[in-house]
Write a protein that binds this DNA or RNA. Sequence first.
RNA 1: CGGGGCGUAGCGCAGCCCGGUAGCGUACUCGCUUGGGGUGCGAGUGGUCGUGGGUUCAAAUCCCGCCGCCCCGACCA
Length: 568
Amino acid sequence: MKTSQLLIPTLREDPVEAETVSHRLMLRAGLIRKTAAGIYTYLPLGLRVIRKIEQIIREEMNRAGAQELLMPIASPAELWKETGRWDYYGKELLRFKDRHERDFCLGPTHEEVITDLFRREVRSYRQLPLNFYQIQTKFRDEIRPRFGLMRGREFIMKDAYSFDSDEAGARTSYQKMYDAYTRIFTRCGLTFRAVEADTGLIGGDVSHEFMVLAETGEATVAYSDQSAYAANLERAEVLPPTDIDDAPLRHLTPVTTPQCRTVEEVTAFLKIPPRQLVKTLIYNTGKDTVAVLIRGDHELNEVKLARLLQVTEVRLAESEAVKSLTGAPVGFAGPVGLPGVRIVADHAVHGMKNLVVGANRADTHYMDANQDRDFKIDQFADLRNAQAGDPSPRGAGSLTLAKGIEVGQVFLLGTKYSKSMNATILDEKGQERLAVMGCYGIGVGRTAAAAIEQNHDDKGIIWPFPIAPFHVHLLPVSQSTTTAEATARLYEDLLAGGFEVLWDDRNDRAGVKFNDADLIGAPIQVVVGDKGLADGVVEVKVRRSGVKSRIAPSDVVHHLRILSATTA
RNA sequence: CGGGGCGUAGCGCAGCCCGGUAGCGUACUCGCUUGGGGUGCGAGUGGUCGUGGGUUCAAAUCCCGCCGCCCCGACCA
């Protein structure tokens, strides 16, 4: 392709709206343009990257035995009402009415649609296992889209759904997808980790997220330094501590702590370490109110709390609610004499003695409060976020925290959807039974963004070979007919050699071409100019290393074959 | 939705405090020049200053409403 035939509107300066590296570079390199908040147009170069990733996904999904189909973007409300997600999904589901006033939504995911297809078309266990996938535009009306393709409202997703006749089969299907995902992200040239994950709105029993490790990631990953354990921070288990404080119990003593609301303020005022204080957080579950006790230096994990309380969402109580419950302003809540409310505590609180807690009175805390004697805890559970250095919950080692971008997630759904939608098959005994499902997603645009986050320098993008929009950027830097002819010959040779070539045929100075080439990030640049041709060579530059070699034009294809095999 | 910030030419910005016929850089067009890391000179094109209202002889500038966008939090591929 010639540059003059493609719209590649590179920008010299950073657009202000873009903060993260991938967003900035996608705009600057002319890959995407914004159409509305969280909604983007893929320009020719950006689309080529998307198509490359899609192709890798297709090949690996097909290899894993999945079959491609394409479901509609608009789906009728009835299906969503069957599973209850019409109400449950909330505002993220973009709804609209057709001309007959019938309710529809734009599909944010397709469990309902595929399960409907399955129950109509599949009758027998003999047809299983089945795995259907599609690569399609999804719409989720995100509260705050950001970072370009990283979190758009409209985005391209590969989603797959497996159906098995029993749990064991479903696990096999799950594992196949897990393995396929591993191959996909490896082929895309990404450094990633599969981590145990929470199941969120999709639901189900088991889930892994595929996290590309990058500083700009929105998720935090906890992984063991000595074993395979890795989990999303939301999910990472924390073992109950084994040490128990055996200090003698001291008398419960109120102390005045004027204006000391936060852990920092109280512990600084009392000159105690944060780990000796227990903070009391008042939470609403929608149904009722609970008090949660967490050690001062720990962080409550709301996902774990919601799971413990078996509700979908927990929310910190409003300050007015805290006041009326505790009789004190926010900052002085404590478990001692807290009336008629369920008290749950993190495991770490279990072994503690002589705690500092709020006294449910303005500007007052208690010192040396003790459980059972001064207050009662209804239940202990794992409620805090894992911290770096915590022992790995399974296997050896201790945990390290890192930031990650979630590019894919696999779920073992069980019968959640087949049950609510009555998707059954007949087993070998002629008995009707629910299909056991799994679902599997990959964010295609997000994968591209993650690749940029992981592969760039201050000049621009450095595409991994398999997903580069072009393999080779051909850069004539002289205006002579010698250079023009040599470039044209080389272009034909490279195409014949199976390379995708972007030929910068603009009448611009060398510097302009070099800068654009570095920005666009094709893994290999071939520079053709009078100087080199006089010596019978052209210059081959590897974008990532910057290493340049002088190669005879007739040897370029051979040389690039070797390079492409090693620079992927 | 809560908190912070911003809307002036395709992009990056100044002008606003102190009202008086809209400017810089870049990009784009033309001419000459240059020709291996964003060449130089000159001449141009392009803006109802987000939008609606108000104050005023006069509003980009002051006041009020609305809309949009970005960043931080709660959600997710």
